Amino acid sequence: MTRTEGDTWDLATSVGTTATLVAAARAIATRDGAIDDPFAEPLVSAVGVDFLTRWATGDLTSADVDTGGTSWGLAQMPAAMAARTRYFDEFFANAAAAGIRQAVILASGLDARAYRLQWPAGMTVYEIDQPAVIEFKTTTLAGLGAAPKADLRTVAVDLRDDWPAALQAAGFDASQPSAWIAEGLYGYLPPEAQDSLLDAITSLSAPGSRLGSEAVPNTAGLDSEDTRERMRESTEKMREHGLELDFTDLTFVGERHDVGEYLDALGWSSVGTPMGQLLASHGFDAIPESDDDGPSMNGVTYITSTRA
């Protein structure tokens, strides 16, 4: 489904499917013992996308789907998502240890951190996402008997709308330091929307606040049509197995500010960790370099920024 202005989605369509894909990778990483996300597999199964359910449960493997020499395969995803999950889990643990007592998960998707992390007393966790996504996850987890381990406040609003007002209406206190994460988000925003999001976060962040980001590479120098064609070719087998999702319709290419540099200019102090370094530090193998020249997970950088 091609992105349009004001488009909406659930967890089985458009951008929402990518959240389910990531949760499926977390389910595999959990089964492999790399992380502990007991909610990933049941949430994926509840969404009901057959391809992703079969992959999450092991009925379908990456070898059945991947095309050799591509940066868009499934094989590297469980390790990459395990390392990413650990990074943001540790980010929140460190923020809580520093005394921060309000956390915000932007575009929360199937993130179950409010239910699986050991939060300190007095912690409030805000989840922001599309109304259909929030309703599905909340209802499904309740049906599984899961209960949040913090004061969870869901904020059912599109990030293209006035989400700061909705967040504050839910009880967010901009005078107190906060911990934010933007995980798997920036690539689905136009470059100018990324800047607007960072501006809004800054305006709501008291001194001592922290922001954890997954920053995607600048694709201004790439031939967008050539890149999109390579992505289509490398994901053809996914469509053959029933995943009717064209990733080329979901992401935005073009000139994009470096997240760390942009935030530092706004008064933050940022430290970046490239994907390769993150994988190595957690004992995972490196992601092979692709035969194509398009963007890949090797170009992703994880950034922790602190508001001065």
Rank of each mutant, 00 (worst) to 15 (best):
D291Q: 13
T235G: 03
S270W: 02
A165G: 13
M297Q: 09
G122S: 12
P131Y: 01
R54D: 12
Q168T: 08
E41Q: 08
A107N: 04
L141Y: 03
T85K: 02
G260N: 07
E244Q: 15
K137M: 13
Q277V: 14
V133E: 03
E261H: 11
V133C: 13
L110Q: 05
A193V: 12
E41L: 07
D195S: 15
A56I: 04
D223W: 03
H282I: 03
A220W: 08
A182N: 04
S175R: 09
A156W: 01
T301I: 04
L159N: 10
R232S: 08
F284G: 05
I28M: 00
E192P: 02
V259G: 00
L263T: 04
M77L: 14
T301M: 02
A107Q: 01
V253H: 09
T67V: 14
E236R: 15
A200N: 12
G299C: 04
S290T: 04
A56F: 06
Y186M: 15
Y262I: 00
W268M: 00
T18E: 01
H282E: 10
V65P: 15
L279S: 06
I181R: 12
G221L: 08
T67I: 11
M1Y: 09
N94E: 14
L43N: 14
P164Y: 02
I303L: 13
M123D: 01
A200G: 10
A156R: 08
Q176L: 15
S203Q: 14
V155D: 05
L279E: 03
A206S: 12
Q130T: 06
D249V: 01
V65L: 05
T138D: 14
R239Q: 11
A146N: 09
S108I: 04
T139E: 14
A25N: 15
A166S: 10
V125I: 11
P274Y: 00
A46L: 04
V15H: 04
S196I: 02
G143Q: 10
P190Q: 12
L243Q: 06
L117H: 04
D223K: 07
P274M: 02
G242C: 09
G48V: 03
Q118H: 15
D264N: 14
G109Q: 01
S175P: 02
D50R: 15
V44P: 14
V133K: 01
A97N: 15
A142V: 07
S178K: 06
S175D: 13
T4V: 13
E240Y: 12
I35S: 06
N298P: 05
E135Q: 12
D264H: 05
I287F: 10
D158T: 06
T139G: 03
L141W: 03
N218L: 05
S62C: 01
G187R: 02
P288H: 01
A19I: 00
S45G: 09
E229K: 10
A34R: 08
M1H: 15
I201P: 03
D32A: 14
R307N: 08
K237F: 08
Q176K: 13
D226W: 13
E240Q: 12
D36R: 13
G267M: 12
S196T: 07
S108L: 00
I105R: 06
A286F: 05
D10S: 06
L152T: 09
E214V: 03
E135K: 13
D64A: 06
R113L: 07
A265W: 03
Y87R: 07
D10A: 04
T304L: 07
L117N: 11
T248K: 04
G272K: 11
E214C: 02
E289V: 15
A150Y: 08
D32V: 01
I201C: 03
Y87F: 15
Q194P: 04
S71P: 14
I303A: 10
